[in-house]
Structure formats: structure tokens, C-alpha cells
Computed example of a mutant assay.
Amino acid sequence: MKILHINASARPGRSGTDPRGSHTRRLTHRFVQRWQDARPGDTVTCRDVGQAPPSPVSGDWIAAASTPPERRDAAARARLAESDELVAELIAADVVVIGAPMYNFGVPAQLKAWIDNIVRVGLTFGFDRSRAGEPYWPMLAPGKRLVILAARGDYGYDPGGRLEAMNLVERGIAVPLGYLGLTEVHSVAIEYDEFADERLAASIRDAEARVDDLVARLLPA
């Protein structure tokens, strides 16, 4: 199997290991490590958009992506080269693991740039205005899993929580990727980061236990 491991935190290190390290990097590292312990032959592709953000979509990008492949000139192909690489990684993956810290209630800009680069007509979704019924359809192969490992400064963002309506992270990832066909979604989050007390420590312990359980459930029989 192939794992696509994406980190989006602007913090380069991992909490518990590095000063001021990232909680999401801590969780994605744990997920991937547990998976590799169980299946050392599986392939892991690491994409650190937090430290090396993809180029944002521009007018030239839109023009190139909207041009049929056979009509793209060298400049258009060069403009899409990075996006093509990101799309290829996504298409090849069986499990997509995304470390997504909450920045101002939503996903980091560098992760949004990744999403914008992988939503590609003719590659990850189809469109035909003459098609009867729904003109859009997903193009990713079925069976892929999406794992979102998040971190939040406050608490109560989970379903039923006091701030559920303000949580735009999981939806901000699951909605566009679901549009491409990646509809099996699992999520775990650390909360209370800004409180930095025993509640944070307990949330970290709980999240790590949930990550371990999630790996055990997702591993092939």
C-alpha cells in the first residue's frame, strides 16, 4: 500500500520532541510510524506543505489547467508541473494522512494551496456540461481513505461541542477531497493548546490513543 503523508503546520518540529513543536506533526508521525511498524514494506511519500508551500493558483495556472493537454504550450506545461506532481501523489495513494492545525478556524493557507493544486478537471474530477443530470463527477479510484489529524487552541470543536459551527478545518479538507471521490474520512484532534495545562496533556494522551486505534482499524486484515 501507499501512504501520502502531508504536514501543513508552519512549526517545523514535533511537540514532545522539539521546543514549540507542532501537535499535528506529532500525530502524523505517530500514525505513519505505527503503520510502518505493522507494514514495513508499504511506501510512504512525505509532502511538507508547511515548510515548502505549493505555489498558489494564479491566472496563468487557471488558463493552463483549462486548456486541453494537447493544446498546452511549454509555458503552460511548466506552470502545471508542480500541480501534476501533487496530483500524481494523490492518485497513487491508498491512505492520505493530513496534519492540519487550525489557523483562525480554518486550514493553513499552505494546505489550501495544496488543495487548490490537486482539484484538477480531467484528472481528479470530470466535467461535461452536456452530461445528463450531474455535470461533475469524481475521478479518484474508490477505496482510498482520508485521515485528518488536527490541533486546536481552544476546545469544543468536535460534533456536538460548543464551537462545532466554527470548525472549518475538517470540512475544509473533507468537502473538496470528497468532491474528488475520497469519501472515507477519519479524524482525530488535540485541543486545549492555548491553555497549556493538564487538559492539554490529557487531550494529547487521548489523541495518541485514538491514532493507535485508528491505525489498527485501517490496517489490512
Rank of each mutant, 00 (worst) to 15 (best):
D37T: 15
V175M: 09
D48H: 08
A216F: 06
F195M: 01
T67D: 02
D128T: 02
L90H: 02
D128L: 12
P108G: 12
S130I: 03
L214Y: 08
W35F: 13
G13P: 13
R217I: 01
R145H: 15
W114Y: 08
V97P: 04
T183I: 07
F127E: 08
R79N: 07
G59D: 10
V57H: 04
I115T: 12
L163A: 07
L140A: 07
F105H: 06
H23C: 02
W114S: 10
R25H: 12
C46L: 12
E164M: 15
A202N: 01
G41C: 08
L140I: 15
L27K: 01
V175K: 11
A141N: 03
M102F: 06
R199C: 00
N104R: 09
D128S: 05
L182S: 01
G13N: 15
G160Q: 13
N167T: 03
S58N: 08
R11H: 12
R11M: 06
V211P: 11
E194V: 11
T28Q: 07
E134R: 15
G122L: 05
A63S: 10
D197H: 01
A196F: 00
F125N: 09
A165P: 08
D212L: 06
G21F: 04
D193R: 14
L218R: 01
G106H: 15
P176L: 13
Y155T: 10
P40I: 10
A92V: 13
T17M: 11
K2Q: 11
A10V: 14
D213Q: 11
Y136R: 14
P69K: 03
G13K: 03
M166I: 05
I62H: 02
A216E: 14
G122K: 04
P220R: 12
Q33M: 13
I118H: 04
A38F: 14
R14H: 06
H186V: 06
V96M: 11
E170Y: 02
V107T: 13
G156T: 14
F125A: 09
S58R: 01
I190Q: 00
D158Y: 07
P68W: 06
A196H: 05
S58V: 04
G21V: 14
W35D: 08
G106P: 06
L168W: 14
G59K: 03
T43P: 04
H29Y: 10
T124Q: 05
I98R: 02
S9H: 00
G160D: 12
P142Y: 05
L123Q: 15
A201R: 01
A88N: 06
A93W: 09
S55D: 13
A109H: 05
R145D: 14
D197L: 00
W114T: 04
V119T: 15
G156D: 02
A52S: 11
A8N: 02
D73T: 06
S22E: 03
M166E: 10
D154Q: 09
A8T: 10
